[in-house]
Amino acid sequence: MNDMQFLTWVRGTGLDIAVSIFVLGVLWRLFEIYSLGRKADLAAPRDTPGASGWHTIFRRSIPPQGMVKKSPVSYIGGYTFHIGLAIVVFLFAPHILLIKNLTGLSWPALPSQFIDLVTVVTMAAMVVVLADRINKPVKRYLSTFGDWFTWTLTFLPLLTGWLAVQHLLLPYTVMLALHILSVELLLIFLPFTKLFHAFTVFGSRWYLGKINGHKGVAV
């Protein structure tokens, strides 16, 4: 298989397989998780404005008071890499095009130099977060194979994408193919690893907000 065939495969059959497993996995896992259901709360609710599942989905994106000081690396590194990822994934023109092709939705892109910068910052943040995981007793204690594996799965698309754009290490065609392949691996494993938090985080926050909101606590 030459590099062009490799690229065409990852853009064609490979993508098809990856997206299919992703869609299949996401639906299966969402059903599996949320079909367990929850009993209705019979306690009389206390109504406080701002205390609800929806509010919590957004409110939890802001660090609670004092916590940034407690664990600056987790917060700054984590926020940087999540926001960076979002920018790179959703505001880079070629990615928007893919999303447009798959969903029909599109929006304006950011200049690629900026995306480039964000990618580097994101990768740096990820490396810092990784170092933190190795150094911090709690994180090291909690970490399993899955944590190292998913870090790699997330890092590879950034690295390969950046290398491809910068024309480093391997010819662009191969690098682009590796980039797409790494994204496909990410898609394939996402529903079955802790990466699935990308989906359940909303459900979790909503439940937290809902359960506590019932008590009048805006969490």
């Binding site: 896992r29 599996e32 949320y34 079909s35 987790s74 911090k136 399993t144 699935f196 359940t200 979790s204």
Partner: peptide, 18 residues
């Protein structure tokens, strides 16, 4: 007693240690 919130919570944990 394991219900949807618990399932959701376990799936959301990223071992951040916060």
């Amino acid at each position: 007693v394991i219900d949807a919130p618990i399932a959701s919570y376990f799936n959301s944990c990223v071992h951040c240690g916060l």
